[in-house]
Design a protein around this nucleic acid. Structure first.
Lengths: 191, 191
DNA sequence: TGAATTTCTTGTCTTATGGCAAGTAGATTG
DNA sequence: CAATCTACTTGCCATAAGACAAGAAATTCA
């Protein structure tokens, strides 16, 4: 099962339509460290991840880089605002490992989006799903301790914890690498 | 200028289309304390706020209510997931003050959404804008101190600080009412 | 392979925020 | 008007996480 099949699964999309959608993508690989998108660039497409791990991040006012998200297998690396509003990105998207992706450019997407009614629905479903997950994360940032957030990340997205350096996970969780190191130590001690 | 005119302003929507859209809404008022939507209910429309302040919140595992957002004049009170996925809400939406809103039900929206191409674009723009703001907030929760978050809320959304009890603002900022009270005291002292 | 770089850990001290409890002031209600 | 409530403040002490710095371990690279 390819990433595309998983990503585009939707009740309103037929096998034929999916075929058309898949064909609009082309395969692209990234080496560890490569950028899929940099700050100030205008995104011209989005990436469906087949293999590997990507990190999105921003710089805060102190110059620290803050991990805003991880994108792994069967997920989409996209800066929604930059792509659809045609404005420069504020985020960086960088490959944490060698990656295999399928990319589709905006023009192709727009064309399909207007001709395949189900894709329209799929897009809205995807966006509202993203909104929901982000909301969950915001609530978690408020109500859960750093330890709890780490444990949840570990159980729900073990591949992130396995593939990403500790400092990126730490900034994603909103703590320093020092603190995360200590949290890990405590968790090991407990079990 | 009514809330509807502000909310639905979009380059692809003509005056005639706007007229049709506006007519699909009906006015509805809420008294302080009324619920627009409760947990477990399936949303059947969304509310464009003309006047007043609404609070959305969830209960965390400890039974504390956590404010997830404030919705004021010219903003939309909506549970995207519940409305479009037809599933029970996890949030409560409650009027903090007497409110005047314009409500549109899902069916009417769907009909317009499929007949007015610009509304389609408007919807996507609205959703991506929401995604962006939520992302900003998540980053702020990580990189800014509680004091900074409060000051920003105060400068960007003074009406919230003016109309909402301190405890709701506190939970929105991710701190206790006690802490927010102290932060306020410090800020007053500084100026 | 050896040097350089990055990653991770650990120690010490500081600080922001929380938990709990008491108390005041203002609003609401019977 | 008195009796409750609710909102807010304040004090005391506990704790999670940060700042800074040193060093160990792992990885990268020439």
């Amino acid at each position: 099962m390819s990433a595309l099949q998983t990503i585009y699964r939707h009740p309103l999309l037929t096998a034929e339509e999916l075929e058309i959608i898949f064909k609009a993508h082309r395969k692209i690989t990234f080496n560890k460290g490569d950028f899929l998108l940099k700050k100030e660039q205008v995104a011209d497409g989005y990436f469906c991840v087949e293999k590997g791990l990507i990190r999105s991040y921003v710089y805060d006012f102190n110059g620290n880089d803050i991990t805003t998200g991880f994108i792994g297998k069967n997920e989409i690396a996209i800066d929604v605002i930059s792509l659809f509003h045609r404005i420069p990105s504020v985020e960086y998207f960088q490959a944490l490992t060698d990656c295999e992706c399928y990319v589709i450019d905006l023009e192709s997407f727009q064309r399909l989006y207007h001709s395949i009614i189900g894709l329209n629905e799929w897009g809205r479903a995807w966006m509202s799903e993203s909104l929901f997950e982000l909301k969950q994360r915001t609530i978690s940032m408020i109500t859960d301790s750093a330890t709890e957030r780490y444990e949840r990340l570990q159980s729900r997205h073990p591949h992130i914890v396995q593939q990403s350096p500790l400092k990126f996970i730490a900034s994603y969780l909103g703590i320093t690498d020092t603190s995360l190191s200590r949290i890990r130590k405590e968790l090991v001690k407990e079990n």
